[in-house]
Design a protein around this nucleic acid. Structure first.
Length: 350
DNA sequence: ATTTGTGTTGAC
DNA sequence: TCAACACAAATG
């Protein structure tokens, strides 16, 4: 989890100021102890009770030694980044370093790979780093911010890594199983997605990978906010209705209203897959089905594998990999602030 | 009752 | 762009 976060960029040397606990009384005011531009930085990590208390009493919050990190009244730390004259809040954290890390992630997503960060970006050549890089570029700014605020970034990242390698290995063996499809159903497989933690979390939404959304689902030009209602039929012939819309704030296509109910009833967990189909016939009926994560042997849900099983048909995951190597057109450069971020959350499913 | 994070201001 | 500060809005 923690990278070797020890020194501060620019000047390699780690400056551990030996300033004991006396910092409490910075001569005051304002310009007293600011971060020195780029040179050394004051590292006073001592959380000695005395200091904390003095801090609490003097109402004067000790500023952070990290960029993008601001103290909170209750002793915690907030992280923020600015873009286009506006602050984008990245959440609050117990540890100063966590907040700094959050800023680092955000700044890389917002300003590119070589943005100035609090901690050195080491493994710039390892596989792990590459995966994180593509993970970042394959998520919108607001998605990343969302993860940071919810402290789910690492989970999502790990999940992404997992499903990525999963795809690669299964792709090999997938081809043959496909042949036996024969005449079972007049359905055409559109795409599949391995759901992320946030897809099954409290966000109550499923992000539809852009390329799939634009290729298979009706576009709603202009009408950005409302979205449309889509009907899907599952293997039990149950009809699910989801609101499908485009979020400007995150520049992503999502299924919102109705989604969390699906997650709940299907007992969807991160790592499971959701597949979308459409009838090949004249009717444009859409279908949806979920499939437990490959490794998980658990009983799906209350559905003991019915004979219907079109699932089995697609038992193997051959969908196009959406986020392993696909680079997002990073021409987006313009995700506004986060006022909008909340809007989607309003959706109260059920 | 607390905590978050926004409004705002002023420096860099 | 950025953080300090105050405090309203959000949350438990």
């Amino acid at each position: 989890m923690y990278t070797s976060c020890t020194y501060d960029k620019t000047t390699t040397s780690e400056t551990i100021s030996t300033i004991p606990q006396s910092v409490t009384t910075p001569p005051t005011g304002e310009t007293s102890l600011r971060r020195l531009g780029s040179g050394g930085n004051v590292v006073l990590d001592l959380e000695s009770g005395a200091e904390v208390e003095a801090e609490a009493q003097s109402k004067k919050l000790r500023s952070s030694r990290f960029k993008g990190v601001v103290p909170q009244p209750n002793g915690r730390w907030g992280a923020q980044i600015y873009e286009k004259h506006q602050r984008v809040w990245l959440g609050t954290f117990n540890e100063e370093e966590e907040a700094a890390k959050a800023y680092d992630i955000a700044v890389q997503r917002f300003r590119g790979r070589d943005a100035v960060t609090n901690f050195p970006q080491i493994d710039t050549n390892k596989k792990e780093a590459k995966m994180e890089a593509s993970f970042l570029s394959n998520h919108s700014k607001s998605e990343i911010v969302d993860m940071l605020r919810k402290h789910t970034y690492n989970d999502e990242l790990e999940q992404s890594k997992r499903s990525c390698t999963l795809h690669k290995s299964s792709l090999q063996t997938a081809s043959n199983k496909f042949s036996r499809s024969g005449s079972i159903l007049p359905r055409e497989h559109l795409f599949q997605k391995v759901v992320t933690p946030s897809d099954v979390g409290k966000l109550n939404r499923l992000v539809i990978p852009k390329q799939h959304a634009e290729k298979h689902f009706p576009v709603q030009k202009g009408s950005t906010s409302k979205g449309v209602l889509l009907h899907f039929e599952d293997s039990d012939s149950t009809i699910w209705r989801f609101r499908y819309s485009y979020w400007n704030s995150s520049q992503s296509y999502v299924l919102t209203k109705g989604w969390s109910r699906f997650v709940k009833e299907k007992n969807l967990k991160a790592g499971d897959s959701v597949s979308f189909y459409s009838s090949t016939g004249p009717d444009k009926q859409l279908y949806i089905d979920s499939k437990p994560k490959i490794g998980s042997s658990g009983i799906t849900n209350s559905q003991p594998i019915e004979p219907v099983q079109m699932l089995r048909l697609f038992g193997v995951n051959i969908s196009s990999v959406s986020s392993c190597n696909g680079k997002r057109s990073n021409t987006e450069m313009d995700v506004l602030g986060f006022q909008n971020c909340k809007k989607p959350r309003i959706i109260d499913v059920l």
